[in-house]
Design a protein around this nucleic acid. Structure first.
Lengths: 202, 202
DNA sequence: CCTTTGATTAACCAAATGGTTAAATCGGAT
DNA sequence: ATCCGATTTAACCATTTGGTTAATCAAAGG
């Protein structure tokens, strides 16, 4: 199945695939071993326990989904530009790993504790706070409507991520195949910015 | 724990609590029995198997979250009114069962098949299709901007539901306690309508 | 060629888990 | 009081599952 790479990485790849698909509780160590094409004992030889292995996979996934939000462009571009770029980049980024958001939300929901330390060790949120100050200031200056920066942030993330979280339902309700779904996502890169900016018009 | 009601309902309540919290894979029949204050064999006596029990709990949850979307107000009110009411009613409704959305999405994601027959036997989506025609017509008449009705629908649902799906993360990032979170949700009833209607302004 | 050392495997183990069963208990009808 | 069906329980069972162990393999170094 997997080719002749070093075993550690083979295992992580297999674990990622199985954990993301089935969740911590649903994943079987045997399935991970099969996916990696190795003996089950190797998993413990390299990573001690199921929990340790999951921890690594989850940390990586969390980082991929949450960290980009902490990287809101600094610089001095006008706030509308920043929002446009954030939305475009974020949707593009999530499109590369479309199954991670629901995986994250689901696991965090069942075990909120696994996220707490990770948030503390996530220094990149300084720039989010910075972005929020900008929002407030731009509101006072009349450049945009005065809105709660948290609600603005939430709205952006909701519009970007939700389609991936609800993907099977959406495709079921609207009878979309994967190509149609991807086209719809592509359309959203511009549309979500339209929605947000129309709302922010002073 | 649970009082002297009839056993069937006691079991369903307990099963609901455990399944929604831990998911199908994470839930233990023994935990459900303990929660209901009865012997584990009773679960099988009344509901045969874990899967059968889960099926009932899931169907009910699915109905609570998805069906209201099919009940988009008919009548002849202007489309803006309908949108406002849908948003207000839907956020209010989900607030009563805030843990159901992530439960639904998570389980549907792991087992898409459990949703398919349920969608077919969900006739109430006729009114959604009707609503979509209205959107198109209102667009052509210049009453609102011309937008994809699917994207409109998605945006509304995303803005209403996402906060509940991402709740632990949101509270972690923004250091919100439950009261602040609830206040934020309350604020959104009006705000989400503002966002959507600003976007739809012709 | 032999030894050493890390990598790999088959076999095994104990605990957990969904499910079953046979006996006991309860409650109403006769 | 007794019978009878429905309900409830304790004990049990087979399978699954995460994890361990002792033996084997293979490559490097001497």
């Amino acid at each position: 199945m997997a080719q002749e790479k070093n075993t550690e990485e083979q295992i992580i790849e297999a674990a990622r695939k199985i954990f993301v698909k089935r969740g911590l509780d649903g994943a079987r160590m045997q399935d991970i071993a099969d996916e990696a094409g190795i003996n089950k004992a190797m998993l413990h030889y390299y990573y001690r326990s199921k929990d340790k292995l999951f921890e690594i996979v989850f940390a990586e996934a969390f980082s991929k989904v949450v960290t980009p939000l902490g990287h809101i462009l600094e610089g001095s571009k006008p706030i509308e530009e920043k929002i446009k770029e954030l939305i475009d980049h974020y949707i593009t980024g999530i499109s590369q790993v479309p199954y991670l958001p629901i995986f994250i939300f689901s696991e965090v929901n069942q075990r909120p504790e696994i996220m707490i330390k990770r948030l503390n060790s996530q220094p990149s949120f300084g720039s989010v706070m910075n972005f929020m100050k900008e929002v407030i200031e731009a509101g006072k200056n009349g450049k945009i409507k005065e809105v709660s920066p948290i609600q603005l942030f939430l709205n952006i993330v909701a519009l970007c991520i939700f389609p991936f979280v609800a993907r099977p339902l959406i495709q079921g309700i609207f009878q979309q195949d994967n190509i149609q779904f991807d086209m719809m996502i592509e359309e959203r890169k511009k549309m979500v910015a339209d929605v947000i900016l129309a709302w922010l018009k002073p």
